[in-house]
Design a protein around this nucleic acid. Structure first.
Lengths: 330, 330
DNA sequence: CTGAAAGCGCTTACAG
DNA sequence: CTGAAAGCGCTTACAG
């Protein structure tokens, strides 16, 4: 790799002068400046961001830590985060690391490769980056909302969206409601489960155990759930804790010859683009991804800037998108 | 952040001694060693990978450069690459960057944040990293196969898989075949188009222009294609250049009341897990993701190691997975 | 076996 | 306006 020293030699100046031209901080004589610019051009110099970051104590980059890149929600969030970061002149690196000690992200954080990390990993256990947070490294939890956290949190209102789903079903006359929940070792799923249950309770609707299925946040889980939920006969509707679960539910229902929405309503949460596909046509509570990303990057940037001390906590509302899997006419 | 100097002070030794304990290269007196280990534990020291990399001239990390993270194929590839890299004691960072000058990856490369990059970006124009490659930085193209490239290439055999698709349809008696191709500004789509066309030609089957639709690699593109392909009446089968295109085709056909496979066969290429879902049940040529990832990481590691000079080029075969969207009985 | 020194590629006071 | 010097946090010869 060509260094600023190489460029300096070629331009016949000292290395710091090259640095000055690059950063434009001090005035440089026009003639020297031109020589340096020419040398930069000729050599195709690219600054060594590591050396720069080490010296400056700041990299201008943020990290995104995830552990389940196959979660179909994630690419949309990452894209939005990358875009929001770029608007603030920050670059973004993504670490996909199933290990809860997050060795990659921790190394990146300790190294100053990034100035802060956004944690979008769904699972509860992420002690690696949380240890960094305790040591004062900027960490923001995105779409994870522990009840008590000494760190910044920007998340969709998982509780509220599930509660609203329950209200929606009850208000359309449903009483025999089934639910397929996600895994307990995440934050979003338990919050959604809690919201759904509390809302049903508030409406005086009982959710018997044989109407509940818990499993992974996956198509397969939803698919399997249907068979298990059938034991009590057909419910009025099936609430799915995630859109991807709902796809499995819909497919299993179709396989069993059950008509949606005529025989059963189905709804999900997330608002994945796929939910609008004809195969699914799924009613869902959509997360506001651009908003989440923008708020998360803003909050992390503020934390990095040190302009804030108290942790912020933002729970952004979701939007009900009614489609063919539920039907107001019922 | 706590540095090795802090640890040294705490242990009452010099900073290089801490370094020696960490790297275990030289013998350190047991007693001193224990003091250092204790100090490491107490401080929660994490090495600064940047300083390490700068000094060592090697980071032990590879980068994955992508420009379309929403491509549903990508997460599986990234997961496989991360796993393959970990087995070789390499960490992985992902840059999602739609800019063809790939500023993030180029900066990361020039910085020694990574020792080499795997480029999985689909679009043709990636002059940023290609410039790095010309300067001798290890770059491997993954699932992109320019005819002539002075860099390492590991890819699925896009041409061959599409050619095999054509053969499959023709051998099952189809003559009126339609095709939905992806965009020309990528590598995979044109290769698949070429393979499909040449194979049909070799079988003496004509592919008229009104049986061809070209568009994005997306559900919407497939959905729109169907309307356009209907002008000539129903074809025997519709070949889709990507699974995701096929989903749109299947949905549009269902909407139009056309039965698959009874009225029309549909097949795709990629082998996404979703293709096995009941909604799609799609016959496809599956890419061998674990194999691609392993070979790509191996080849890049060899390039980084400098043990090779000539570029390698690997085109891995795909596997036909027959499902309900085609039917041997027809 | 262990410390003092040099150096990876930068930036930023400090002289001149 | 420009160069020589120091230092970011490491590793690795070089002395002792």
């Amino acid at each position: 790799m060509v260094t600023s020293r190489d460029v300096a030699r070629r331009a016949g100046v000292s290395q710091p002068t090259v640095s000055r031209v690059l950063n434009g901080v001090t005035t440089v004589a026009p003639e020297i400046r031109d020589r340096v610019l020419a040398a930069l051009e000729e050599t195709g110099y690219v600054p060594n961001a590591q050396a720069k970051a080490m010296r400056a104590g700041r990299s201008g980059a943020i990290g995104v830590v995830t552990s389940e890149i196959q979660n179909p929600f994630l690419p949309y969030l990452v894209d939005a985060i990358t875009g929001a970061a770029r608007e603030r002149d920050l670059t973004t690196v993504v670490w996909n690391d199933p290990d809860p000690s997050n060795p990659m992200a921790v190394a990146g954080a300790a190294s100053g490769i990034v100035d802060g990390v956004l944690v979008t990993a769904a699972r509860r256990d992420i002690h690696g980056v949380m240890t960094m947070a305790q040591r004062g490294f900027p960490v923001l939890l995105c779409n994870r909302a522990p009840e008590e956290a000494p760190v910044d949190v920007v998340t969709s209102d998982h509780f509220g969206s599930a509660a609203a789903s329950a209200t929606y079903l009850v208000e359309h006359g449903h009483r025999d409601i089934a639910a397929v929940f996600g895994p307990p070792d995440t934050f979003a799923s338990p919050a959604r489960q809690k919201g759904f249950r509390q809302s049903l309770l508030a409406h005086g609707v009982h959710l018997p155990d044989n109407r509940v299925f818990s499993g992974a946040t996956s198509y397969e889980s939803g698919y399997r759930a249907v068979r298990s939920l059938f034991d009590g006969g057909l419910p009025d509707s099936i609430f799915c804790s995630s859109d991807i679960i709902a796809y499995g539910v819909l497919d299993a229902l179709a396989e069993a010859g059950v008509k949606v929405p005529n025989d059963v309503w189905v709804c999900g949460i997330d608002g994945l683009p796929m939910s609008g596909w004809r195969s699914f046509d799924l009613t869902t509570h959509a997360q506001d991804i651009p908003h989440i990303a923008a708020q998360a990057v803003d909050a992390l940037a503020a934390r990095i800037g040190g302009s804030r001390t108290k942790p912020v906590r933002l729970e952004l509302p979701t939007t009900l998108v009614v489609r063919g899997s539920t039907n107001h006419a019922k």
